[in-house]
Structure formats: structure tokens, C-alpha cells
């Protein structure tokens, strides 16, 4: 019998080796697997490469993982925010490496990894500093940059509902990087707020089919601690 459900976050996470590449979903306040990030920090693996759109906010979650000294390199599109002081400090002291990737290229490199694509030519970034050192080609008269897939050893994904086969649905804009990260990692762990019986998720509504997912763990729904939200509207 296939049963991917785990009783605890630590069981769901399993062993994580030093030097692993960890894909972490989430964008702003939506879809951040905060409980799994905390479990990863408590598990204690070091020299990690993290892939996330941002580089942590405030002092909790991803920022706490960075502050623990467990991270060697950050791969992201937008590390600098008003409250990214943990990353900013590590970066300015030369204690963390940064690979800056345009957001769509980040998503597509993850998609390519999950889809078994060896590399792809992408027009984003052509002629900019982010294409320096990369192979380029004119295709139909337009400049393209060669981009490589971005594989993970582990993906941490926050979903909404799941079942014991690992099928997942998401909620609103919390979907963001979840589906492509789930497919791009050798081992994918998802939190859900609700565990459904097999068949309890309409097959028409499954967003991440279970074959991409290794462990599912149910967590309570709590008010978000994820960063990026400010009460006043942006100017």
C-alpha cells in the first residue's frame, strides 16, 4: 500500500545531507512552507544551497535558517527587501553566496529540471549583466541565453489538500513555485491543511499529481508569519 503521509514534520523531512540543494516554495505571504523550513533548521544540515524567490524576511522562517549559518548559497530573483536584514548582513560580510536569476528563468529552470530538459535558450536577460559568461545565440533574429535546469535534492512545498498518494491542491496565489519545485527535486515534502481520502480530491482538480511527491504531512492553519506584508499600501 502506498502511504506517503508522515506523522511529524521531522519524519516527513527525513535525513538531509550537508551540501544539499533545497528548493523552497513561497512568494510573499503565500505558500511559504514555514513549518518545514523550521524542521530543516532543527534537523541541522549545513552547507546548504537554497532556492527561493526571495532571501528571507524578518527573523523567522528562511531568515532564521540563514541566521543559523546553515546556508552556503542562495539562488533567488529578489533577495533585497525592506526586512531582509539577515541576508543583507551575511552577504555584506561575504558569508553567503548569491546567484541572482530572473524570476521567470528561475521558474523555467525548475520546470526544465522536472521535465528532463537538458538546457534551453531563453530571451530573458540577453544583453544584461545577468547573461555575462553564458552562451548566447540569435534565434529568428532575437538574442537568447542558454540556461541550465535547476535540480533539487529536496523540495519543501506548502499545499492545501493532499492524499496518501501525494496528490496536491493549492490555495489561490500560494500555488506559485510549488508545482515546479515538487517536480524538480529528488525528494519532495509537502505540508497540507487537509488530508483527503483517495478519491476525495476531484482528479480534474489535482494540480500536482502524487508521483512528484514523497511525503505529505498535515499541519494546522495558522496566521502567516511570512514576511513581505506591510500594512500600508506600497506607494
Amino acid at each position: 500500500m502506498i502511504d506517503k503521509t508522515a506523522a511529524t514534520l521531522a519524519d516527513a523531512l527525513g535525513p538531509v545531507r550537508d551540501g544539499a540543494t533545497v528548493l523552497i516554495g513561497g512568494f510573499g505571504t503565500a505558500g511559504v512552507p514555514e513549518e518545514l523550513i523550521d524542521a530543516l533548521r532543527q534537523q541541522g544540515a549545513r552547507e546548504l544551497t537554497l532556492v527561493n524567490n526571495n532571501a528571507g524576511n524578518g527573523d523567522t522562517g528562511l531568515a532564521a535558517l540563514l541566521a543559523s549559518g546553515a546556508v552556503r548559497k542562495m539562488v533567488c530573483s529578489f533577495p533585497r527587501t525592506a526586512d531582509s536584514w539577515v541576508f543583507d548582513d551575511l552577504y555584506r560580510r561575504g558569508r553567503i553566496e548569491l546567484e541572482l536569476v530572473p524570476q521567470g528563468t528561475l521558474a523555467e529552470r525548475l520546470r526544465a529540471a522536472g521535465a528532463g530538459i537538458g538546457a534551453f535558450f531563453c530571451p530573458t536577460g540577453y544583453g544584461t549583466p545577468l547573461a555575462e559568461g553564458k552562451e548566447t545565440r540569435l534565434i529568428a533574429g532575437r538574442g537568447h541565453v542558454l540556461e541550465l535546469p535547476l535540480h533539487g535534492d529536496l523540495a519543501l512545498v506548502k499545499a492545501e489538500r493532499g492524499d496518501r498518494w501525494g496528490n496536491l491542491t493549492y490555495r489561490k496565489a500560494a500555488r506559485n513555485f510549488g508545482p515546479v519545485m515538487a517536480a524538480a527535486a529528488r525528494h519532495t515534502v509537502a505540508t497540507v491543511h487537509e488530508l483527503a481520502e483517495l478519491g476525495g480530491i476531484d482528479p480534474e482538480h489535482v494540480v500536482t499529481p502524487g508521483l512528484y511527491v514523497d511525503r505529505v504531512v498535515r499541519i494546522d492553519r495558522v496566521a502567516t508569519r511570512a514576511g513581505g506584508f506591510r500594512q500600508e499600501r506600497a506607494a
Binding site: 512568494f27 505558500g31 521558474a107 496565489a173 506584508f229 506591510r230
Partner: peptide, 23 residues
């Protein structure tokens, strides 16, 4: 807070709207 825009501010979705992943 699961329904935000690129600037990470809360928004709404109009009837007819859709959600999809980053890729």
C-alpha cells in the same frame, strides 16, 4: 494572505479570474 500581488500586497480576484503556477 494567500491572495497577494507581485508587490506582496493583498488583492482580490475578479469573477472569471484564474490561478496558475510561476512557470
Amino acid at each position: 494572505f494567500d491572495l497577494i500581488n507581485a508587490g506582496k500586497q493583498p488583492v482580490t480576484l475578479r469573477p472569471g479570474g484564474a490561478y496558475f503556477h510561476h512557470a
